[in-house]
C-alpha cells in the first residue's frame, strides 16, 4: 500500500469512523437516559411508550433501519438527511434502545430505601431522580456502556455499505486499487481493535472517577490482564438476557 492511499483514504476514513462513533454515542446516550428514565416513570402511559420504543428499536436490525432512514424516510417525509447524519440517527436510535435498558436496570438497582429517604425529605420525583438516583446509578452503568460503545464502534462499519467514507469504505477502495485484500483488511481490523482498546481504557478511567465521586474507591487499575477487555467484576452478565446488550448491528 502506498503512502498516498494511506493519506487520502485510510486516515480520513479513521477520522470519519471516530466522528461517527462520537456523534452516535452522544445521541444514543441522550436517548438511553430519556427512554430509560421514562421506563421508571409513575405514569403507565409514559412507561408503555418507552417500552414500545425499546422493543421496536432492539427488535429491528440496525442495518435495515439505516437503509430505511436512507431510502424510505425521504420518500415518506419529503426530505432527506445528509448521509452522515442519517447514519448517526440510525446508530443513535438503535444503540440508545440498548442503552435505555442499561439505564433502567441501574436505576432499578438503587436500593428502594434511597427513594423512601428522598420521600421522607420531601424531594419532588425529579429532585429524587437528579440528586439521589442518577448519581448512584450512573457509575453502575459505565461498564455496560463500555461494552455498548465498542459495539457501536463496530456498528459504524455498516455505513460503508451506504458509501460513507469511513475506514471500512477506505479499505474497500484500497482493495480495488491494489488488489491486495489480505493486507488492507488485516490493517483495518487492527485499526478497529486499537480504537476499541482505547475506548475501553477511557471508560475504565471514567468509571474510577465516577465511583470516587460518590465515595467508592475501587482497586487501582491493574497493569496485568491487558487481554481482558470487558469488565471483570461483572456478575456473569453473559448469563442474563439483559447481559446481551449490543446485538443487531455487528455483534
Amino acid at each position: 500500500m502506498t503512502a498516498g492511499l494511506w493519506e487520502h483514504w485510510v486516515l480520513p476514513g479513521i477520522w470519519i469512523t471516530v466522528q461517527l462513533t462520537l456523534y452516535s454515542a452522544a445521541l444514543a446516550t441522550a436517548v438511553a437516559f430519556g427512554v430509560g428514565m421514562a421506563r421508571t416513570h409513575r405514569s403507565r402511559l409514559v412507561r408503555f411508550f418507552a417500552a414500545f420504543y425499546t422493543e421496536v428499536f432492539r427488535g429491528t436490525s440496525a442495518l435495515v433501519l439505516m437503509f430505511w432512514i436512507f431510502f424510505v424516510l425521504p420518500q415518506l417525509a419529503g426530505w432527506a438527511l445528509v448521509p452522515m447524519w442519517a447514519a448517526v440517527l440510525a446508530l443513535g436510535l438503535s444503540y440508545g434502545a440498548y442503552g435505555a435498558e442499561v439505564v433502567r436496570g441501574a436505576l432499578n438497582a438503587v436500593a428502594p430505601a434511597q427513594r423512601e429517604a428522598g420521600v421522607a425529605l420531601s424531594f419532588t420525583p425529579w429532585q429524587r431522580m437528579r440528586l439521589i438516583l442518577l448519581p448512584q446509578a450512573v457509575p453502575e452503568m459505565i461498564p455496560s456502556f463500555c461494552n455498548l460503545l465498542v459495539e457501536l464502534l463496530k456498528g459504524t462499519a455498516l455505513v460503508s455499505l451506504l458509501g460513507i467514507g469511513d475506514v471500512s469504505f477506505a479499505a474497500y477502495l484500497v482493495r480495488l486499487a491494489t488488489t491486495e485484500s489480505a493486507q488492507i483488511y488485516s490493517i483495518t481490523l487492527i485499526i478497529y481493535f486499537v480504537l476499541a482498546f482505547l475506548l475501553t481504557r477511557g471508560m475504565k478511567v471514567l468509571e474510577r472517577r465516577a465511583k470516587a465521586g460518590i465515595g467508592q474507591f475501587p482497586e487501582p487499575l491493574s497493569t496485568g490482564g491487558w487481554l481482558r477487555f470487558r469488565r471483570s467484576d461483572a456478575k456473569s452478565p453473559e448469563l442474563s438476557s439483559t447481559g446481551v446488550t449490543g446485538g443487531g448491528a455487528s455483534r
Partner: peptide, 20 residues
C-alpha cells in the same frame, strides 16, 4: 409534599445518600 414537610423520619437502615 406540603403537609409532609412537617414530618421527619429516621430509618432503621439509616438510608443516608452514599453519593453525598
Amino acid at each position: 409534599r406540603e403537609v409532609r414537610k412537617n414530618i421527619g423520619m429516621v430509618f432503621q437502615q439509616f438510608n443516608l445518600f452514599p453519593n453525598m
